[in-house]
Design a protein around this nucleic acid. Sequence first.
DNA 1: CGATGATATGGGTACGTACCCGGAATTAAA
DNA 2: TTTAATTCCGGGTACGTACCCATATCATCG
Lengths: 359, 359
Amino acid sequence: MAKAKSTKPQKGVKEIARRANVALATVDRVIHGRPGVSQKTLEKVKKVIEEMNYQPNIIGRRLASMKEYHFAVLIPEITEESGFFWQAPADGVQQAAEEIRSMGVSVTTFFFDQNDKRSFAGSARRILRGGFDGILLAPFFMEESLAFTKACETKNIPYVFINSDIPDQKSLTYIGPDLYASGYLGGQLISYLIKPKDQVLIVNISREIKNVKQNRLLRKEEGVRSYFTGNKIKNEILKIDITNVDEKAVEKKILEMLAQYPRTGVIFVTNSRVVSVAKCLKKHFIDHVRVIGYDLLESGMEYLKNGVIDFLICQKPQEQGYRGIMALYHHLILNLKVADRYYMPIDIVTRENCAYYKN
Amino acid sequence: MAKAKSTKPQKGVKEIARRANVALATVDRVIHGRPGVSQKTLEKVKKVIEEMNYQPNIIGRRLASMKEYHFAVLIPEITEESGFFWQAPADGVQQAAEEIRSMGVSVTTFFFDQNDKRSFAGSARRILRGGFDGILLAPFFMEESLAFTKACETKNIPYVFINSDIPDQKSLTYIGPDLYASGYLGGQLISYLIKPKDQVLIVNISREIKNVKQNRLLRKEEGVRSYFTGNKIKNEILKIDITNVDEKAVEKKILEMLAQYPRTGVIFVTNSRVVSVAKCLKKHFIDHVRVIGYDLLESGMEYLKNGVIDFLICQKPQEQGYRGIMALYHHLILNLKVADRYYMPIDIVTRENCAYYKN
DNA sequence: CGATGATATGGGTACGTACCCGGAATTAAA
DNA sequence: TTTAATTCCGGGTACGTACCCATATCATCG
């Protein structure tokens, strides 16, 4: 018979071992589901763990297993072309990384070219080879993203979607905008700016038609239209898709439209390319048209301030990056529950409050 | 002569000890500034620490010193009277508390009666006696708050202001709204709703006149006025202070004002009591007056939805609580730098986006 | 010069968990 | 029955830091 152990109450694993009258190592095996434990002891130990409602001490755990956690981030390049939009999420990622570095977490960011599926797939491959423990990605290209997440699932690596969602995937969580709702809100903002007989021009500016990004724009457009029908707003909605994202091309198209439809009172641009439109209006001294767009970029702020753009709809890009990393941290290290999606608040940014959204 | 130590590279304190050729305990004394180290060794060890750019391992530290950190929170009671406003910051505090509990931090919340300075002082006293390591407080009453923070400074306890700031204090940080800016933004929102010859009515509803809260309202009012003068808006601004916060009393005053000034087009209420005003307008079927107010309470949302209130200006009350606690955590446990103030974004909440701000 | 006290220093253990390794118990094969 | 293989279990050490306690060193005074 095993000799009676000391009965002074301990805590954690030790206490389990004491109560179940087994060695620490055995408890450890049970907790980690390692083999080498008889059915009998297994149940005994499990019962004690249950009784104690044992919660492992994160600190002790992190110290003992000096395991480093490596997170990978896959987002578009921070380019002039995209108005440096992805700088903000990258900053948020950075901020989170600093905060949890002392817990043994490192974060590596991979970029891809928004106009090149292959660069996305290439970075994805490199991530898969890199042996990462968690992944944060902007699923820009549908097929490539699906292939990637499937591989992650095989390897049992949790991944978080950011900025764009692919529903029905087994992502740990989605963090980003509710596009439809933001368009709906856009509809309301339009209604504040428009006069009874005016027309509204919705502008989608995007190079690719068949990628996820394009669908994003359409979701927003749906939202706007839905607000109009839902609130019985009679103003006519015009619409134009511009696939040549060059500023000159945008300028030309916009001028054409305005010439053709002179009663256009509001232009609603479904992404940050609103800047190109604003630039055009400013250049041609068109000041009877109000403009609403998306994302608070440096350039957009300028047009907000000089009154060319009235509203920008903005969804906390920095916080998206921050929360994405923290979701992985909570899940993998702290064992906290993570909500399966988190829609960012839809911020209305105007000339007067934009300073508070820029950081 | 001390015998030569092993030279295999270690990390952390051990490596310092090895390089400086002293014992671990000595290094420890230096790091914690404890006495019992000769000037010579002190400098030697400090030099090595410098060279290595030594960063203590938080995990090891937390494990060794099983010190528990206790944070105290001092906020107003969550009452019907205040529209349960403080529920949100309390929730944020709770969320942060859960997140850092595994790092050995506990959070205790103390409440006070907004109408009773003594209850504030009483809770403050209890906190001071409680031996807390960090404090988050809403400095509602000027004198009492100053006495409290002074006591904290004496005891070397860091404190964070939330929701209201008292400038020039040695608070670790301030987290809350920029009141003036929010009023300024309010001015812009008014301009969207007002017609050329309309008058604007600013309403301050607050029981106390001389407490911090009252000053808050005045700051917002200043912001509005400043927007009007700055943007050369000619509409007349009317103003009324209501110190009887009872709904009946508010109703009476509002009706009086509207009778006296029938060209009132917009009512701007400087706090969440906007609900009382909305209630009054709704009751008397007054629908030609637009309403702007503060804070997204359950009751306010209702009037937002049925169109009585157009805009609510809102400053992330939940996040204020969350960030406040995290600031203490970053400072005390993680040794991270904390910005000396953090102004919350000024959210514009409308019928269409309010759902995203409620949680 | 020895006793005393203050100052300086090092050894060692503990925190809660992970994991290696050797040995006991059990079972299968000889 | 002995031996080998297998399964099961416990002892012990490590992670990086904090802190107690014992000892060495040194100045001071009787």
